[in-house]
Amino acid sequence: MNAKQPSSINAKRSKLKRREYGWGYAMVFPLLFGMSALFIWPVLRTIYLSFTEWSDFGNYHWTGLSNYIRLLRDTAVYHSLLHTLQYVIIYVPAIVILSTLAGVLLSSKVRGISVYRTIFFLPSVLMPAAIAMSWKWILNGDYGLLNAGLKLLSIHGVSWLTDSRTVLIAVVGVAVWGAVGLQAVIIISGIKGISPMLYEAASIEGAGRVSQFFRITLPLITPTLFFVSVTSLIGAMQVFDLIYMMVGTVAIDHVNTVVYLFYQQAFIKNDKGYASSIAVLLFIMILIVTALQFKLQKRWVHYD
């Protein structure tokens, strides 16, 4: 009797377990199916296609490493890497600093705070294409709103989106404008998670608002900041839509990023094999940079 009982309990338990597993798989199935059909499979295909050369109507043949050899020799690739790097270097710090600032200001108790939050968040619900089109108009050299404003201050504005010196900063500016609201909301949620007791204690000890920010808020939202910096870095490395929509023939040579180069090869020059190898290169770069960020986070991110 005694010897039998535990095994039947075990059997019951494992049956229960199996049932639980069944439910678990059923629940995640749609996601898994979607992931593998829409994400994992295309990634594997892209890697395979990067070893092929394309001709018309989907005919392609295996060419081994030749796309990668061409990649290493192509100066356009190095230019696009440089532009992507420049973009990232301006974009990521700008997003982190500005969205922290906005997050702190928008989490203070002011009348009508929800109105301000809405205003900051509005660009995030706009389509990138709509943002690009309206900013293109604002930044127009001869008829733009920005230069009309500058004219009132007797400053002669340049043609922001066609001048090689300003085009990158103009595009980054618009991208930051469009993304800062959403990132600020994420940071607000991080700030809301900080116990008010800490601030009370600090103010009793005589800490001012500035030192409260640097001693309490900033260290405690580092996990949120980490999330914001990882996602915006990945986003910045993949920037395409704004550049495609806003920058025309002339200035494109000064902002063609890696994804733009990919687009150019895949859809203008119809060289899908070479384009795939560019995509693989970008994938590896993002992988390395993100891994690096995770490694470095131990130095500055506090999880407790």
Binding site: G141, G248, V250
Partner: peptide, 8 residues
Amino acid sequence: TLAQMTDT
């Protein structure tokens, strides 16, 4: 110029 024509 080409830059101006790209703008408008």
